[in-house]
Amino acid sequence: MNYRHIYHAGNIGDVLKHVVLAAVIEYLKRKPAAFRVIDTHAGIGLYDLSSEEARKTGEWQGGIGRILAAAALMPGGVRPILAPWLRIVAEVNGIDTSSPSGDALPEMAAEALIAYPGSPEIARKLLRRQDRLTLTELHARDFKTLSGRYAGDFQTKVIELDGWLALGSFLPPKERRGVVLIDPSFEDTREFTKLAENLIKGWRRWESGTYIAWYPIKDMAAVRRFHKRLVESGLRNILAVSLSAGRPTADGVMKSSGLLIVNPPWTLEDDLKRALPWLASTLATGAGAGWELEKLVDE
């Protein structure tokens, strides 16, 4: 396994994934009962955008960089949806987020961005004291960094493990409430098949959990086969969403990605209908930019 997310941190795929992850966690917090977040392909938690790896690709500039540059023009209806995520981005960059309003966006220039939070850090900062976080990471170097970051944190458990095994080992969690984020590297051409098989396996072990599965969009035929497999599997309540900066291509920088969400919060679809048009127009770089939202299977 050679994939390392530092090359892609903060890109358009992260924007979509982290907006949705934060929205799901905020919804879970509406009830006092504890929940668990399970991140199967966790990475290192926090990414240094001044590092050689991040500067080599500069993908964050087309993602979180564009969002911050346009934040002052963000419509009022979009702000409360993006605020939980953007406040964490500001916090890891040393910006004061102690606003009296939870929907207020901290002032932060894209040029001041030196770090970007991965999904573990976003989840951890959104947890309440009673909630728990389980992180699995197989890459030895990244596991060492991740485990060091959360050493001594009683709410966070870090395990050196193939993320696919987590779906069999940790479900259902004892809290019986929560969300599973599945964000594989897609280095393997069989990744869509593995994603479908393991998502189905996980759901059968814990049918009431929320699942967020991320995938790049380069081959639309592969995406359609993936969706078809899940529709035919018997899974219920499936929402598919995509965000594109331009027309997807098989080679080059990823311009489009998608999420398949099983058991989404009932509020999520309407939230995304408000946020996605602004995100798509802000991140657009050429023909084919846009967004899609489709309920693949009803409850």
Rank of each mutant, 00 (worst) to 15 (best):
I238E: 03
R224G: 06
G286M: 13
E191W: 04
A222L: 10
A115R: 14
E197D: 15
N263I: 01
W203C: 10
F143A: 08
S242F: 03
L276G: 01
I200T: 11
W60Y: 15
G102M: 06
H5M: 09
S147H: 09
S147C: 10
L230P: 02
D162P: 14
L272D: 05
V78E: 05
I159G: 13
G94M: 09
I38H: 04
L293Q: 03
T282A: 08
K201F: 14
V158R: 03
P32Y: 07
I212G: 00
L296R: 00
D271R: 13
E187T: 05
R36Q: 14
E91D: 15
S99P: 04
L161N: 10
R236S: 15
R36D: 13
G118H: 02
K31T: 14
A9K: 00
G246D: 13
L276A: 04
L68G: 07
E137Q: 10
P80C: 12
R124A: 15
G94A: 10
I95Q: 11
V180W: 01
A123W: 07
D188T: 07
A83G: 04
A69K: 13
G209R: 01
V92H: 00
D39F: 01
A23V: 05
L127R: 07
V89T: 01
N198S: 15
T134M: 14
P172T: 05
G118I: 01
A22V: 02
E175P: 03
T189W: 07
K255D: 09
V78P: 03
D14V: 01
Q130R: 13
K144S: 15
L138Y: 06
G252C: 10
R30F: 05
E91A: 12
D96Y: 06
A69Q: 13
K29M: 10
R4L: 05
P173V: 11
S185C: 03
G94I: 07
F226M: 09
T57S: 15
P32H: 04
K194M: 11
V24L: 08
A140K: 14
D298T: 11
V158H: 09
F192G: 00
K228N: 12
L165R: 15
R247D: 13
T193V: 09
A240V: 06
V15L: 09
V37L: 05
T57A: 11
T193A: 14
A250H: 14
M108A: 11
G43F: 03
R149F: 09
E197N: 13
G163S: 11
A69F: 07
E299V: 02
L86E: 01
R176V: 02
R87Q: 09
V92C: 01
S208D: 14
E26P: 00
A196E: 05
L68H: 08
E59R: 05
A109Y: 08
P216W: 07
P100Y: 08
R225N: 11
W85M: 12
E53M: 11
R229C: 09
D153V: 11
G65H: 02
R224Y: 05
R190M: 10
I261Y: 00
A33H: 11
E191Y: 04
G10Y: 03
E299N: 06
F154Q: 14
T136I: 12
S169V: 11
P32W: 04
A222W: 02
